[in-house]
Amino acid sequence: MKPAAFEYSRPADIDEACALLAADDGARVIAGGQTLGPLMAMRLARPSRLIDIARIPGLAFVRDEGKEIVVGATTRQHVVENDPLVRAKLPLLAKVMPFVGHTATRARGTVGGSLVNGDPAAEIVLVAVTLGAILVWRDGGESQSIAASDFFLGPMVTALPLTACLAEARFPVWPEPRVGVGFHEINARQSDFAFVSAAAQIALDADGCCTRAAIGIGAATAVPLRLDAVADALKGQRFDEARVRELAKAALAGIEAMADLHASAEYRKRVAVTMAVRAIADAYQDAARRP
């Protein structure tokens, strides 16, 4: 299981990386290599050139910009997992990080790599969609921004142009004092890709009523879903499990769930409701704990 031969380049900056991409149709970017590596080993991916962006200065960072926490594309997942800023201001991202692969893959894998790979079961992808992150790429010396919900087009398919390189992801920070998060996923083994996952972030007022909610479902469909109708309906509401279940059921009634060796489409569709209810319940509870 050896990869096909390729050339290796290590550009000095992101624009050089883009130029290398533009010059070679078969070139691909590598940062952590935790997804690309297995694909290359099985020769399911055979890039003619790997453009290693992991050492490009200024691409690995977690930065507080007030309304947003900005995460550089090559920031290692274990850095984000342990980052105090992420814990304080992006509780949903902090919550899902331990579920991303294993300790050893998080040590190499990057946040940008996970986003660009576009796996609908990836936890970071789900958080980006749920929170409405903005993704920023460089292409031909220009920067472009796109909403996460527009970025993911299908399983492992994104809007990223072939000549572009992701630079950063901008996650919105909720300023409300009482913000809670919930995350649930179901899989065969604890660290496998989820059959279905659900993420919820909820802000409560002093009375325990929801003032804002963001809810997302991962792994069930070709791209993660945002359940905005559910989020809107929760506004002004205290947690009521039966009602939340009805809302989730209605929101997920028409989805086209995926099927594979491990789980049927019916399973994904049915359990998506369960996962959503549990994530929302956890988020309410988490928020209620805050003063």
Binding site: I186, N187, A188, F195, H262, A263, S264, E266, Y267, R270
Partner: peptide, 11 residues
Amino acid sequence: IKVARLGDMIA
């Protein structure tokens, strides 16, 4: 006895 298969049977 795989998770999803059992889940479908139970449902």
